[in-house]
């Protein structure tokens, strides 16, 4: 049995480092499943993130060294890279990371001041401004590119041979006319080793392991991942009474960014709600919005938009979810004081 610390890490640097360590299994799984494009994205994003951070700190006349060495901006870069399509060209990764760091973080005052999740802001901006690249460059896990092909994709010459739409997109468009049984025959599902979706299932499992370790280390609290995953599970189970028309529960949980986001994106403490109850409501909100946008919206995945919307709701959630203070009859509700 691993030793469980009594408190979260005692330094910001160590908090960020723990999250990066917890991401390692997921990174390894993604590199195996989707090829070297993942690593190329990561390297580009990390370098861009560090350079953007240094530039902003210099422009803002802040000391550069302490912020660069606390891993926070590296983490932002890694999260952006892991959210992008695996065959993304270099400019997409650079643009996404730079907007995450500059527009998402430093425009508001840097570390601890961002009202929304920087990584998701970068992702959403790219999804709106480069929709084709963001939706068609996902690697097919059944046929991942070798290193040379991944490099070609990185410098902007991708091949349709190994890219395509995501599983969630398949259900949104291609599978409309199919019954559940027919969809099950699709190679991605038929060849699955764990019985879910080929490749994706290993990635989800790896993120799950990393995420559970973070809870164990008290870096994140259970309310956030449980809130999101339980909401997705309950809503999608409820609406998939007719399996032929609805996206199955396990696709909702495993195919998209579900598990990755539950443990690594929604848990950004700065832009989320802060009390335990508040975190639960925040995650439930993201879950409801995600299901709604995935089902009725134009975009295949919806975590980014849902997170951004709930980020704006976080201060309100905080106002209504304060724990009851010892010695008081009830908890304080609502905003108060002149601020």
């Amino acid at each position: 049995m691993m030793h469980r610390p009594a408190y979260p890490p005692r330094e910001t640097r160590l908090v960020m480092r723990s999250v990066l360590i917890a991401l390692l299994p997921g990174i390894v799984a993604m590199s195996i499943v989707f090829g070297a494009g993942v690593l190329l994205n990561l390297a580009t994003a990390i370098v861009t993130a560090l350079l953007s951070e240094a530039l902003c700190l210099k422009l803002r006349h802040r000391s550069i060294q302490p912020r660069l060495s606390d891993w926070s901006v590296v983490l932002t870069g890694v999260l952006v890279a892991l959210s992008l399509p695996q065959a993304a060209p270099w400019w997409l990764t650079i643009a996404a990371t730079a907007s995450a760091v500059i527009l998402g973080k430093h425009l508001y005052g840097g570390l601890g001041q961002n009202p929304v999740n920087p990584a998701m802001l970068g992702y959403a901006l790219m999804l709106i401004s480069a929709p084709v690249a963001m939706t068609t460059l996902w690697v097919d896990p059944l046929n991942p590119p070798d290193f040379a092909a991944a490099w070609m994709a990185f410098i902007g010459h991708h091949s349709d041979a190994y890219t395509g739409a995501t599983t969630l997109e398949l259900y949104q468009s291609d599978f409309r006319a199919l019954t559940a049984l027919e969809a099950k025959q699709y190679p991605l599902f038929a060849k699955a080793q764990l019985g879910f979706i080929y490749g994706y299932e290993w990635v989800a499992l790896a993120y799950l392991i990393g995420g559970l370790w973070l809870i164990h280390q008290r870096v994140i609290s259970w309310q956030t991942p449980v809130g999101l995953l339980a909401t997705l599970l309950v809503i999608s189970a409820f609406f998939s009474v007719d399996p032929d028309t609805a996206t199955p529960v396990w696709v909702h949980l495993i195919a998209g960014a579900g598990i990755f986001a539950a443990f690594f994106i929604l848990t950004d403490p700065v832009s989320g709600a802060t009390s335990p109850k508040g975190r639960l409501w925040f995650a439930i909100g993201v879950g409801v919005l995600t299901y709604t946008i995935r089902t009725y919206g134009q975009y295949p995945d919806a975590i980014a938009f849902s997170v951004l919307m709930m980020n704006f709701a976080a201060p309100m959630i905080d106002h209504y979810t304060r724990p009851r203070i010892m010695g008081r009859e009830a908890s304080i509700k609502g905003p108060g004081g002149q601020s």
Partner: peptide, 22 residues
Amino acid sequence: ESPCIRCGACATVCPVRLQPQQ
């Protein structure tokens, strides 16, 4: 000192159940 990242560690140890980060 570095900026608050609202991790909430303070809230979990507050014996009065305050939200010190807020």
